[in-house]
Amino acid sequence: MMKHWMADVVACSDGTEISADAARKLKQHGIPLRNEPIASVEGAEGVLTKIRFKSGPDLDRAALFFSTGCHQASDLSELLGCKRDRKGGVVTDSATEETSVPGVYVAGDVSRDVLLVAAAIAEGAKAAVAINKAFLLRDGFCE
């Protein structure tokens, strides 16, 4: 929730139904919910000033956080038999980025809730080192 950054927070669902649990959490934190579909956002010189709804009063705002949603675009990991968490991310060994299927490694938004290029690069580097080590072990070059 954004309440730790500012007191004046309003959730907008753009006409999408929210779960009872989400509604309960919003109410618990004193965050009003606007369910109406959004018609447009307005601003001047790159600064947001207003959210216009298809019905109901406009909402003056200076900032907007949004979520585009996220889901796995490929079912390859599932076809390979990789374990997945409750959100659909591939479960990996945190030290090597190897999945539950030996020899299958992943990095980035396939395995994490944090969808950042920097995190994906770091995970990719860890996976590359682990893959190289696995090849060296397989070929008897290290113990």
Rank of each mutant, 00 (worst) to 15 (best):
G15T: 11
T16L: 12
T16S: 05
I18Y: 06
S19Q: 13
S19A: 15
D21F: 04
D21K: 08
A23E: 00
R24M: 07
K27N: 05
K27F: 00
K27R: 13
Q28V: 09
I31L: 14
P32T: 10
P32W: 07
P32F: 09
L33F: 02
R34K: 15
E36N: 11
P37C: 06
I38R: 04
I38M: 01
I38E: 00
I38G: 00
S40L: 14
G43M: 05
G43K: 05
A44Q: 15
E45Q: 11
E45I: 01
G46M: 07
L48E: 00
I51G: 02
I51T: 10
I51R: 05
I51N: 05
R52V: 13
R52F: 05
G56M: 06
D60R: 15
D60M: 11
R61H: 02
A62V: 13
A62K: 10
F66H: 12
S67G: 05
T68I: 10
H71N: 09
Q72G: 11
A73V: 10
S74F: 08
S74A: 02
D75C: 11
D75N: 14
D75T: 14
S77I: 01
E78K: 11
L79Y: 14
L80R: 13
G81A: 10
C82V: 13
K83P: 04
K83R: 14
K83G: 04
D85I: 13
D85N: 15
R86I: 02
R86H: 00
K87L: 14
K87M: 12
G88T: 01
G89A: 06
T92H: 03
S94Q: 00
T96G: 02
E97I: 01
E97A: 07
E98G: 01
E98H: 01
T99L: 05
T99R: 02
S100E: 06
S100A: 07
V101L: 11
V101F: 05
P102D: 01
G103Q: 10
G103D: 10
V104I: 15
G108F: 01
R112H: 06
R112D: 07
D113N: 15
V114W: 00
V114G: 00
V114S: 03
L116Q: 15
A118S: 09
